[in-house]
Amino acid sequence: MKLLLAPMEGLLDFVLRDVLTRVGGADRCVSEFIRITGSLLPDKVYLRTMPELRNGSRTLAGVPVRAQLLGSDPASMADNAANLARLGPEGIDLNFGCPAKVVNRHGGGASLLQDPEQIARVVAAVRQAVPAQLPVSAKMRLGFNDRLKMIECARAMEDGGACEIVVHARTKLDGYRPPAYWEEIPRIREAVSVPVVANGEIWTVQDALRCREVSGCDDLMLGRGIVADPGLALAIRAAVARQGGGAAPQAAAIGWPQLVPQVQRFWQMVCEDLEPRQRAGRLKQWLNLMRRRFAEAEAAYQEVRTQTDQRAISAWVAALPQRDLACEWAWPESPATADCPAPADPAA
């Protein structure tokens, strides 16, 4: 079984990839998409989205990261893929699933699911442009407005040279509304010979087990579910091992006390690597998702959700291990400051 971390624009970036792969359980990550619109991008654009390229295309925990490209012009995609290949990514993934209107309006992402022939041209151009040993994979949805062409699209990806296909089991029209239609994935699996990975609405261990059973896929891609519960991949591995009659991995359950050092590291990286205007929002965004799983995250979110002062937030984050979140935090009255210090001694 392989468990992959999904590419999620504006959420699962290099900061969360670092934190989540430190918690453990993931076999591979995929970067957020790098948009290709016609020009040859400079190296700094690839590195901004995927700084792991400076570390052998791995997170600091050692988990490989595959770079994702989004575009519809075969020649531009090929040129940029070849340029990116110089930087040594673990592989290149092609985005045929993004439902964003601004992306679809310009012919990228899920909009290509209306044109299987163009998908085949894009995949083939990229496959031919990069070294033979470099994996080229693809991610798709079940379709644009309907599922009528999903088999054609999957075959087009395989025919173009994709070595693996991740299927987000919803159409573009479905967006992110539940449910995910895992029962459609077996039709795609039967139509292609390359590995197929199931994705969509995997929030819990029970979801993962049912997705594997319904889709027939051994391998899963985790998105918002693992952001909400960073121990999800480890818990899935333990459950699958027990289901198969084997010994479960010797790992303690990941509870809030084990996550506090990761919240501290997350805030440290946010302060070091993101623009000041983004920092408080990113912490609130993560806590907001984690409160689905942890009562302590709910309390933390309620404490921090109205705060914008970065020095005050840093003091709050640094104090987390010593504090009972049931007690109200006395926020200092201080003017907004430009930068924030790193939390004291964040755990590695």
Rank of each mutant, 00 (worst) to 15 (best):
V102A: 14
L325P: 00
G24E: 03
R292H: 11
V270N: 01
R279I: 08
L40E: 05
T306V: 13
P64W: 01
A252S: 12
Q302M: 11
V103M: 02
N95F: 02
R311Y: 10
V167Y: 03
S193Y: 06
E164L: 09
R121I: 04
D159E: 14
V196Y: 01
T21M: 08
V15Y: 02
Q206E: 15
R17E: 09
V194R: 02
D159Y: 11
M290T: 04
E164M: 11
R22I: 14
S314T: 15
V126T: 05
L274F: 15
E183L: 05
H168G: 07
A299D: 01
D324L: 00
S39A: 12
G108K: 03
G160K: 04
D18G: 12
G107N: 09
Q68S: 06
T59W: 02
R177D: 08
L148W: 14
D18Y: 13
M8C: 13
G88V: 06
R58C: 12
D13V: 02
P276Q: 06
S76F: 10
S314L: 05
R237H: 04
L173N: 13
P249E: 01
V123H: 07
A315N: 10
A162D: 03
L20V: 05
L11R: 14
S57L: 07
P135D: 07
R105P: 10
I36N: 01
R212M: 04
